[in-house]
Design a protein around this nucleic acid. Structure first.
Length: 581
RNA sequence: CGGGGCGUAGCGCAGCUCGGUAGCGCGCCUGCUUUGGGAGCAGGAUGUCGCAUGUUCAAAUCAUGUCGCCCCGACCA
């Protein structure tokens, strides 16, 4: 493509609405433009990258035995009533009525539609397993769309749905998708981790999220330095060493300490001159309307999802100041487990607290704490659980290796659904014995447009984007720097034609611009390979080549261009961990 | 939904307190010069000041309402 003819409106200045780096660069590079909040138009370069991601996804899905279909975006409300999600999905589901006043919604996901499709056709175990997928625009009316393509309301998603005759079959389908996803992200040239994820309200046995590693990611994941273990923070299990206590549990009786005005852990530590790890935080929650006290060490962070899962609860809310006062008889900041007498309150203790004593805790009395507390001795405990976030000081629950916390962006999710939808919608088949069975489902999503954003979040510098070759709109940026010098133009035109003839996609900057402008735009747009042809080089028979990722430059001899280019291309791709295409 | 902020030229912004001629930088158009990291000079075009209503002789500016966008949180996964 000749840049002089391409619709690539680059910006020098960053539009005010863009905060995160991928959003800024996508706008500045002329890849996307916003139409409304969370809704974007893809310009030529943006669409080209989006399509490259989609092609890789499509190829690997096909290879894994899934079949592509395309389901409607507009879905009838009645279908959603069958699974109960018309009521439960909430405002994220954009609903509307047609001229006959019938209810419809824009599809945020397609379990209902695909299950309806399959139940209409599949009658026999012989027709299973089946895995259907689509690449399609989804609409979710997010409360707060943000970060450009990272969390849009309208976005492109690949969603696949598997139907199996039994659990064992579903496990095979799940594994096939897991493997396909690994292949996809490897081919995309992105650094990623499959992580064990919380199955949340959907339930099911297991689930993995695929995270692209990037410092700007919204999610925190725990990865093991020694083995393959990686898990979401809410899923990462904390292993407690069992022999920590050396006090023999013979602390003196607990006693009150006056701590005026010390509401927070930091204030209390300052006041008493103690370390946070010697006190116990008592966090009060409203769990489905029931009071719960959750205890973690003063220097730890409680994970609400762990608490929620442990209690099999549907809603966990931190108690309001009014509730805290009502339950403890003290203002916020002085809650403690000793003598906490609220009807029906459950006291849950983080496991690691079982191996020490002599704690400082709140006294349920204004400006007062207790010291020398032995939880076993002094508190009626309802249970121990893994409640806190894992830290880098903890050990891998699999192998005992060192844990590192990293940030990631969720770009894929594989899920065993089980019978949830097939049961509700009566998707059944006859087995060998002529007996009716319910299909076992799995669902598998990839955020295609989000991958574009996360690729940039992971690969950029101050000058612009560094696209992996597999998804760059063009593999090569060719800059001609001769101004109006006819010889340089002619030579650049020739190179452009040569490379194009070989099937190499080239963005040819043939504009009548000054060199600085071309360099800046090339770095901004982020094609992985830059070829720079200038008057001096041409005289000496060389062309300059720059690897956008590393910034490494080399000179290619024009006389032997084909071979030298091929060699350089191999080097660049290898740097990305990619095979030669 | 709670909190905060912003809507003025394609982009970034000033002007608003204290009402009276709509401005700056970048970009865009023309010409000349320039040509290896966002050029220089000269000339030029571009606005329902988000929208509506009100106050006023007069509103970008004041008031009320409304729409849109951004950020933080809650929510979602």
């Amino acid at each position: 493509m000749r840049l002089s003819k391409a619709y690539v409106p680059t910006l020098k200045e960053v539009p005010a609405e863009a905060e995160v780096v991928s959003h800024r660069l996508l706008l500045r590079g002329g890849f996307v433009r916003q139409l409304a909040r969370g809704i974007y138009t893809y310009l030529p370069l943006g669409l080209k990258t989006l399509n490259k991601v989609a092609d890789i996804v499509r190829q690997e899905m096909d290879r894994a035995g899934a079949q592509e279909i395309l389901m409607p975006m507009v879905q009838p409300g009645d279908l959603w009533r069958e699974t109960g999600r018309w009521e439960f999905y909430g405002k994220e589901l954009l609903r509307f009525r047609d001229r006959a006043d019938r209810e419809y919604c824009l599809g945020p996901t397609h379990e209902e539609v695909v299950t309806d499709l399959v139940r209409g056709e599949v009658r026999s175990y012989r027709q299973l397993p089946i895995n259907l997928y689509q690449l399609q625009t989804k609409f979710r009316d997010e409360i707060r769309p943000r970060f450009g393509l990272m969390r849009g309301r309208e976005f492109v998603m690949k969603d696949a749905y598997s139907f199996d005759r039994d659990e064992a079959g579903a496990d095979v389908s799940y594994r096939a998708m897991y493997d396909a996803y690994c292949a996809i992200f490897r081919r995309l040239g992105l650094e990623f981790r499959p992580v064990e994820a919380d199955t949340g309200s959907i339930g099911g046995n297991f689930s993995h999220e695929f995270m692209v590693l990037a410092d700007t990611g919204e999610d925190t994941i725990a990865t093991c330095q020694a083995c393959e273990y990686a898990a979401n923070l809410e899923k990462a299990e904390v292993v407690v060493p069992v022999d920590r206590c050396d006090c023999g549990h013979d602390c003196p009786p607990c006693s009150a300490v006056s701590t005026p005005g010390a509401h927070t852990v930091a204030e209390l530590c300052d006041f008493l001159g103690i370390e946070a790890r010697t006190l116990v935080k008592t966090l009060l929650f409203d769990v489905d309307g029931q009071p719960v006290a959750a205890l973690v060490r003063g220097d730890r962070e409680l994970n609400e999802v762990k608490l929620k899962n442990h209690l099999h609860a549907t809603e966990v809310k931190l108690a309001t100041p009014e509730q805290v006062t009502a339950w403890t008889g003290a203002p916020v900041g002085f809650a403690g487990p000793v003598g906490l007498k609220v009807a029906g309150i459950k006291i849950l203790v983080d496991r690691e607290l079982d191996f020490d004593c002599g704690w400082y805790v709140g006294a349920n009395k204004a400006d007062t704490h207790l010291k020398n507390v032995d939880l076993r001795r002094d508190v009626k405990i309802d249970g121990y659980a893994d409640l806190r976030n894992i830290t880098e000081a903890d050990k891998c629950p699999r192998c005992g290796g060192a844990i590192k916390l990293r940030r990631g962006i969720e770009v894929g999710h594989v899920f065993k659904l089980g019978l949830k939808y097939s049961q509700a919608m009566n998707a059944v088949f006859l087995d060998e014995n002529g007996k009716e069975q319910i299909m076992v489902m799995g669902c598998y999503g990839i955020g295609v447009s989000r991958i574009v954003a996360s690729a940039i979040e992971q690969n950029h510098d101050a000058d612009g984007i560094k696209f992996p070759p597999s998804i760059a709109p063009y593999e090569v940026s060719l800059l001609s720097l001769g101004g109006k010098d006819a010889e340089v133009i002619e030579a650049a035109d020739k190179l452009y034609a040569e490379l194009s003839a070989k099937g190499i996609e080239v963005l040819y900057d043939d504009r009548d611009e000054r060199p600085g402008v071309k360099f800046k735009d090339a770095d901004l747009l982020g094609m992985p390979m830059q070829l720079v042809l200038g008057g001096k080089g041409l005289k000496n028979g060389i062309i300059e080549a720059k690897d956008r990722r590393t910034g490494e430059k080399r000179e290619l001899k024009l006389a032997d261009f084909t071979a030298e280019f091929a060699d350089w291309r191999r080097t660049v791709r290898q740097g990305w961990g990619l095979d030669i295409a």
